[in-house]
Design a protein around this nucleic acid. Structure first.
Lengths: 177, 177
DNA sequence: ACATATCTATCTATCGATAGATTGACAAAT
DNA sequence: ATTTGTCAATCTATCGATAGATAGATATGT
């Protein structure tokens, strides 16, 4: 065993590269070099690239889910703050796209097993907000919030203007705290 | 001369493929086969892939600009309707991503000359709305509208649920007509 | 001994890109 | 009217690099 599990370190490298350049933005050799092994060893852990990317999106979704917390225990305002913070950190701290946002944009050329996991990520985000909002919610829809966050990431990064993120999210934060 | 200018037919093929799979979702050979020439002929018109993608994004932006019309002659409501219709057709009619949305998501691995054109596309959209809104506008910011549209495309396509687009855009359309 | 994990070595396919020949159209020179 | 020169556009052929993937040997730990 290395410092950490090799499988995890491979996924770390893949996540970093994929969030910068998408599915074709990394190769088995890239990841092998990053981690310090040979590309055949990456294939040992993830036989195909589809396997790897699906596992990657799955771990990404699980980490997001854990960070967001249990929506049944959150007010609508707090849930919005949590999900905004998740995307804000992606932009401001990590300077990376949302992994599932990139994969979603490229979806028509991705292996179907990857798309399935990416879809589950977005369903999870929507359910999270729905649960926190409850049946009487009359504010912005979960879909509009998730869309705005995903799009704001693209916009702010493309314009190389992080403040555009706040401009895009503005009234969301205002209306929620 | 073929039925249409070869350069244009190459860009047509590239636009179609790029909107499905991103920058690495097409190759010179793909486009050559689509158009019925050899890949060397594609290189004749666009020496590098960066040249091609930059020209592609530029044409894409010009077409959008022409379709949207002059914002100085439009009410805020009408301008919102126009830009919503642009993205709605991308989803419902063309079943494709926004070209600059995909390129924006992949931006960190794209040639800089492509990113420059993509950024100009988004600046154009923001200016379009700003101009139509005028200085007294107190509705949603241009950045929030563009973000929502771009994100709604990703969300609806990923979930293979076009109705999610309306759910994400809903109150925008409602408040504007 | 066995399983896990890595290695070396290699395969086929494709990538973006280039060199150099060929074609056809059109204009200028004879 | 015919020849010559020029140019745009395409072709054939190929380059070196890299892609994802595989076979089989090797090392390590239990």
């Amino acid at each position: 065993m290395a410092l950490r599990d090799a499988k995890d370190r491979i996924l770390d490298a893949a996540e970093d590269r994929a969030r910068l350049g998408g599915y074709n933005g990394f190769s088995f050799r890239d990841l092998a070099d990053d981690v310090g092994v040979k590309s055949a060893s990456v294939h040992y852990h993830f036989p195909t690239k589809g396997d790897l990317a699906a596992a990657l999106a799955d771990r990404y979704a699980a980490k997001a889910r854990a960070r967001l917390g249990d929506p049944a225990t959150l007010t609508a305002r707090k849930a919005i703050e949590e999900i905004v913070s998740l995307f804000r950190d992606s932009l401001m701290v990590e300077d990376r796209m949302c992994l599932c946002g990139v994969f979603g944009a490229e979806r028509d050329m991705l292996p179907p097993e990857v798309n399935a996991v990416v879809a589950r990520y977005f369903e999870m985000l929507l359910r999270y907000l729905e649960t926190a909002f409850g049946p009487d919610w009359d504010g912005p829809s979960p879909a509009s919030i998730v869309s705005r966050l995903e799009g704001a990431l693209i916009l702010a990064r493309t314009l190389e203007a992080p403040e555009q993120f706040d401009s895009a999210i503005g009234d969301l934060v205002r209306s929620s705290g």
